[in-house]
């Protein structure tokens, strides 16, 4: 059975849905970051698959830039989390609703 582009896109969609579920149900901010990484990786699979099946390297280029953005997001996000943890002693999302909106 031949593996086509649709197989990879469906796999990417399933992983994206798993990441969305993680984003919606996690309270701990560190684990929320994990779910964000899953979202970025699922998009990378779709980019690489489209790049392969159309013989075009643009998809791989976009995947590289997505990886670079993910790396910088982790660096800045963890720095901000450490600042928040020093001030409040917790990284739960509920403690961040200081405005009580």
């Amino acid at each position: 059975m031949e593996i086509g582009l649709n197989h990879y896109l469906i796999l990417s969609t399933i992983l994206f849905a798993i990441g969305l579920i993680g984003v919606m149900r996690r309270k701990n901010l560190l684990l929320l970051f994990f779910a964000t990484e899953i979202l970025l990786n699922s998009v990378n699979i779709a980019f690489a698959a489209i790049s392969h099946f159309y013989g075009d390297l643009t998809g791989q280029m976009f995947a590289f830039f997505v990886i670079a953005i993910a790396a910088s997001e982790v660096a800045v996000g963890l720095g901000l989390l450490i600042v928040w943890h020093k001030r409040h002693g917790t990284i739960d999302l509920d403690t961040m609703s200081t405005m009580r909106g």
Binding site: M24, K27, L30, F34, A75, L78, I82, H85, I91
Partner: peptide, 19 residues
């Protein structure tokens, strides 16, 4: 490695509450 560093910094031994 960054996430492992973060997990050492934060208190991750207790169970994570969920929404």
């Amino acid at each position: 490695a960054l996430y492992a560093f973060g997990m050492m910094f934060f208190d991750t031994t207790r169970d994570v509450k969920e929404k």
